[in-house]
Design a protein around this nucleic acid. Structure first.
Lengths: 193, 193, 193, 193
DNA sequence: CATGAATGAGACTTCATTCAT
DNA sequence: TATGAATGAAGTCTCATTCAT
């Protein structure tokens, strides 16, 4: 296995276990065993358990941000963009539930892990936040969204999707998440308009 | 101090510290010292640290449920109920941020602590969920809300309020949360209708 | 066992093992087992292994300083004081070889353990150094010692005694160290005069 | 780089780092990186970290012994020899502080590293000790030194120089150590006579 | 011979829980 | 019932040494 591959394998293993069992209930030994390597070897790739969690967030965040960015760049109405984003997001949850779960369950609720001196842990997700802001601003520009408080619009998008993520993790939703696309898009769109 | 008082003092101390520092970063000794008792003494009231967390959730959940129940029982339009609930919720955050924070940060993301064998951790919040369901059903009955998927409606309420709670904890919002009442109610109401 | 007694027992155990095997070859578990307690329990008394080493130095240093102070306070010639100090020192080595050994072997050569930010590790021994300085200054005042460089006089006392300590630890000397008193005192006295 | 050169480079690197940071705070990787080779490669030259430390001591000890031997072989009074030795020693400290520091800080105080089964760690320094003994014996033969206990005479030389070395490492002395030559020689000479 | 990733033993430290007082 | 010292299991991290390349 090449060095980069192993780096990714560790990251993935950590992501999965963190999101399944939580950061504090996951041990370095578990992360290592999960991919058949020794615990000590992880420290050749990441200087600490915390840094592993941080790298994982950066990784997921960038993926999400890129997804949203692609949509933002299209010549579409805000309504269509919302639908596309919801669609793409649900696909993402289906394909990589551990990543989204990680984002919501580990990142949002263990800020002490991610924030450093003089640096809010939020910065790690800045790219994603920026794209959400752009989505909202564009909608306001076209007159489709009302120009209310940014944080409330932000909450309408991220909060609703976050809640759906939780419910999905709790397995109360239909496994085929795509069936919710229209309904969810509608809710979010209306919340913003 | 009477037995019940001490029980409550412990619960409150745990709640505050758990929500501030997270479940795993809070020690029994801290919880005890915080109210001037000994660590061992906590075990006369709660059999374990986990059970303390569970009792705390039941406590908060009941408070929230009761609040929502009072509103549900009024003879009002769904729109008015939403506004009232948002108002009441924002007041609650302002007054007891630790409780709401606890609900979102500890409960939702540390399920392993709360769930027992054959029992989803969600049951602890059942009373609250029931009241949210009632709010939605009543709105549908009056024709104000569309009769879409319950979970999406649920997410529109709880997700948006949850996101606002996070932002409030992160101190990006105005300290006087009540100024968001109208905007928030509007978003939620429209998401549901 | 009372709290103070246990504190002392730990200190003594650490001192003995550190001096016998060195700081880095002594584990907290050994220190604990040596006096029949658990490793974790040491942390109720000392916050870290380093701090244990520091407390030990302060302890030994104070003992030595007090010994020398008593001699300094007597109305005697410098020559007599040197003899008394050598005598008392050799008795000390005989009785508490681990303490002296600790001072020379652990303290002097593991400065990184003892020094904190902006603070030389030497300060822990300041009281002892001060008394040595007083001994020298008094001798200069009476004309018995030449008024050369302080550090060289200091080295003549502490260096010679230190070397003897090493040799004693290496068991090349007669077990009855007192037989060296006259010879040693002579050497030191002459080195200073 | 030739084999012998690499061997020496490793030895020198180890010596420097051991004396600066202590044996236990120096890693094989550091020693290797310091001279731009790989950690594994060190094991082609030395079978273990301990053996590296031993070889370093033998190396330094031989250098010192040779220095002293040259002086011993001269036709000089003991007094002059002492002065020459002090002079030469102070030059040595100035030029190779890491070597002297290594001798005193690593060797003398980490005996467990150097001693093997049935073999005191002191043997590694035997050549040096022998020359010191010769210096003393010659002085006694000429009547300049009193014929007291050998170990005390030995301590007077090595102890005083050792103490000066420590103070030099602690940077309390003038950088130009040669200014202490006369004073130091005087002290040592008188201690022996 | 060189490399450097991998191993695995072992160190320090934390903390929920127990229990003698 | 209250205390808080003691326990001991478990976790993170380090590093000398090995070995496939």
């Amino acid at each position: 296995m090449k060095k980069k591959d192993k780096y990714n394998a560790i990251l993935e293993s950590a992501l999965t276990l963190f999101s399944k069992n939580g950061f504090h209930n996951t041990t370095i030994v578990q992360i290592a065993k999960n991919i058949g390597i020794s615990a000590g070897s992880i420290y050749s790739y990441f200087p600490s358990k915390n840094s592993l969690a941080k790298s994982a967030i950066t990784f997921v965040t960038k993926l999400l941000a890129r997804e949203l960015q692609k949509i933002n760049e299209k010549e579409l109405s805000a309504k269509e963009k919302i639908t596309l984003f919801v669609q793409s997001y649900l696909k993402f949850i289906t394909k990589h539930p551990e990543m989204i779960e990680y984002f919501f369950k580990v990142y949002l609720t263990n800020k002490e892990i991610f924030s450093e001196e003089n640096k809010s842990g939020f910065e790690l997700a800045q790219e994603f936040i920026d794209e959400v802001e752009r989505l909202i601003d564009d909608g306001i520009a076209t007159g489709e969204f009302r120009s209310g408080n940014f944080y409330i619009s932000f909450s309408s998008i991220v909060g609703i999707l976050g809640a759906i993520t939780f419910l999905s993790c709790e397995q109360v939703l239909d496994e085929n998440l795509e069936i919710y696309t229209a309904d969810l898009s509608h809710s979010i769109y209306r919340a913003l308009s």
